[in-house]
Simulated assay, not measured.
Amino acid sequence: MKKVVSKFIGVIIPLFFLQRRYKFRATTVFLFNIAVPLGFTAEENWIYLFHDQALPLEGITARPVHAMLSAPWGIPWEDILVLQDG
């Protein structure tokens, strides 16, 4: 649960403040929502692999899965952040 909340905070808070200045398009918000989980996954895999807690194959397959499962959560935020500044 902590990882989910930290990903949420890692996407929404910066986008909320940056949207006012840069007026991001919906696709940009969606890409941010993919990039943040990939960063968390890369860090998580680094820790697991160097502490012998995961197999290399598990680390390779986890990256795309994190992005696929996290990306749909950004769709409502695209609408909220982009349409808010219309």
Rank of each mutant, 00 (worst) to 15 (best):
residue 50 F to M: 06
residue 35 A to F: 14
residue 10 G to V: 06
residue 19 Q to I: 10
residue 71 A to K: 04
residue 52 D to R: 08
residue 10 G to N: 05
residue 86 G to W: 11
residue 49 L to V: 12
residue 61 T to M: 08
residue 47 I to D: 13
residue 12 I to T: 14
residue 64 P to S: 04
residue 36 V to K: 02
residue 75 I to W: 11
residue 33 N to D: 09
residue 24 F to H: 07
residue 79 D to Q: 10
residue 72 P to V: 02
residue 77 W to I: 11
residue 18 L to S: 02
residue 34 I to N: 05
residue 72 P to K: 09
residue 38 L to A: 13
residue 17 F to N: 04
residue 42 A to I: 15
residue 17 F to H: 02
residue 61 T to R: 06
residue 63 R to M: 10
residue 14 P to C: 03
residue 29 V to E: 02
residue 3 K to A: 12
residue 86 G to I: 04
residue 36 V to S: 02
residue 84 Q to S: 14
residue 64 P to Q: 06
residue 39 G to N: 01
residue 5 V to F: 10
residue 30 F to G: 10
residue 71 A to R: 07
residue 19 Q to S: 13
residue 78 E to Q: 14
residue 60 I to T: 08
residue 36 V to E: 02
residue 39 G to L: 14
residue 32 F to T: 13
residue 67 A to E: 08
residue 33 N to F: 07
residue 17 F to V: 09
residue 54 A to Q: 14
residue 31 L to N: 01
residue 53 Q to D: 02
residue 34 I to H: 05
residue 41 T to H: 05
residue 54 A to V: 01
residue 32 F to K: 00
residue 38 L to W: 06
residue 19 Q to Y: 12
residue 46 W to L: 15
residue 20 R to N: 07
residue 32 F to W: 15
residue 40 F to S: 09
residue 34 I to A: 14
residue 72 P to L: 05
residue 69 L to M: 11
residue 73 W to V: 09
residue 55 L to N: 05
residue 45 N to F: 07
residue 45 N to Y: 05
residue 80 I to A: 11
residue 51 H to G: 07
residue 43 E to R: 14
residue 45 N to I: 15
residue 29 V to Y: 00
residue 76 P to Q: 06
residue 37 P to V: 08
residue 8 F to V: 00
residue 83 L to I: 01
residue 33 N to H: 11
residue 41 T to E: 15
residue 3 K to M: 08
residue 33 N to C: 09
residue 23 K to V: 03
residue 66 H to E: 11
residue 41 T to Y: 03
residue 1 M to R: 07
residue 44 E to M: 12
residue 33 N to R: 00
residue 27 T to S: 15
residue 6 S to N: 09
residue 23 K to E: 06
residue 49 L to I: 14
residue 6 S to T: 13
residue 68 M to I: 13
residue 83 L to P: 00
residue 9 I to H: 05
residue 12 I to Y: 11
residue 55 L to V: 03
residue 18 L to F: 09
residue 29 V to H: 00
residue 46 W to G: 05
residue 51 H to I: 05
residue 71 A to W: 09
residue 46 W to Q: 09
residue 21 R to P: 00
residue 69 L to E: 04
residue 66 H to N: 14
residue 67 A to W: 03
residue 37 P to E: 07
residue 80 I to G: 02
residue 18 L to A: 08
residue 46 W to P: 02
residue 58 E to C: 08
residue 14 P to F: 05
residue 77 W to L: 15
residue 43 E to S: 14
residue 17 F to A: 00
residue 24 F to G: 04
residue 3 K to P: 00
residue 59 G to M: 03
residue 76 P to F: 03
residue 71 A to V: 04
residue 82 V to R: 03
residue 69 L to A: 11
residue 24 F to I: 07
residue 86 G to T: 06
residue 43 E to G: 15
residue 70 S to V: 00
residue 35 A to H: 03
residue 59 G to L: 01
residue 50 F to L: 10
